[in-house]
């Protein structure tokens, strides 16, 4: 009983602290000084270095989607729906979520480990001692990088997925030519299938950046704390991304009813 109460208390404390942390991050996002150089470095780390992973994953996912949907669509004689199934699959929601999970795994873990390491070796204190706002320098820049990188990476993943599906469709027996595939993939899509799902990854980026930074920035307990912050960053940010997607899907449906 005591442990359960303990869990509940620590859960709400975590939620509260994370909320305060997030609101501080959000506020500082718009306050000078803007750490442009460090932000560029972080976009390089979070965004550019993720490009090969994201492009390859998207491509592979498109191929898998094509093969899977083709085998089931064939039973209904609806092979012509395959491009649409792939493009809708990639663009509407899954692409955004997959990108976010991949980024949570690659970047979130990195941020969590790096900041926790800096915390336990007093590098964050050192920054402060050198009259640098460590929160802005470390946290805001990383969150900004995630917020900027995620929509771009999602776009990349979506298109490489459709591309992967196209190449798979061109090779597979009974597949379709690229031109027809391209048309069928995009003809049934509207902006409301495309823009909101990419824009919502801004929220996912904020979540990944904030959660990872929070867990790293507030890490304690030396070397074990570093490992824990890294693992928790992945777990919590992935979980929160998926949970927030539940809400965002509903909200997007509310704003773009179709």
């Amino acid at each position: 009983m005591k442990t359960i109460i303990g869990w509940v208390v620590s859960f709400f404390r975590f939620a509260g602290e994370l909320g305060v942390f997030a609101s501080r991050a959000f506020r500082d996002l718009f306050r000078r000084p803007f750490e442009i150089g460090e932000t560029v470095d972080q976009i390089f780390e979070a965004g550019l270095r993720s490009v090969p992973l994201i492009a390859l994953s998207g491509f592979a996912f498109g191929v898998v989607l094509s093969l899977q949907t083709r085998s089931s669509m064939e039973q209904f004689g609806a092979e012509s729906m395959v491009p649409q199934a792939i493009s809708f699959g990639m663009f509407k929601d899954i692409g955004a979520v997959i990108t976010s999970l991949l980024v949570a795994g690659r970047v979130g873990a990195g941020i969590g480990a790096q900041l926790a390491g800096m915390r336990v070796t007093e590098q964050i204190d050192a920054l402060e001692a050198l009259a640098v706002d460590s929160f802005k320098y470390l946290v805001v820049t990383r969150i900004t990088a995630c917020v900027i990188a995620l929509p771009l990476l999602t776009t990349l993943l979506d298109f490489s997925g459709v591309m992967g599906g196209m190449i798979s469709e061109m090779i597979v027996p009974g597949g379709m030519p690229a031109e027809l595939y391209w048309r069928d993939a995009f003809a049934p899509m509207g902006w409301s299938d495309y823009v909101p799902s990419i824009l919502k990854t801004v929220v996912f980026g904020f979540i990944i950046g904030t959660v990872s930074c929070y867990l790293g920035y507030t890490a304690t307990q030396g070397a074990t704390g570093v490992g824990r912050a890294s693992t928790r960053s992945v777990v919590y940010s992935s979980l929160l991304v998926i949970l927030s997607d539940v809400i965002l899907v509903k909200l997007i449906f509310f704003w773009f009813p179709e």
Binding site: F44, T155, F186
Partner: peptide, 30 residues
């Protein structure tokens, strides 16, 4: 730091370009 800035620029501009291409590809059918 120059090359880093350069590549980040490539990344952002390329991503936005891809997004815009998407807007036009989808828009053209609508």
């Amino acid at each position: 730091s120059f090359s880093k800035k350069f590549w980040v620029g490539v990344f952002i501009v390329g991503g936005l370009l891809l997004f815009t291409v998407g807007l036009y590809v989808i828009g053209s059918y609508n």
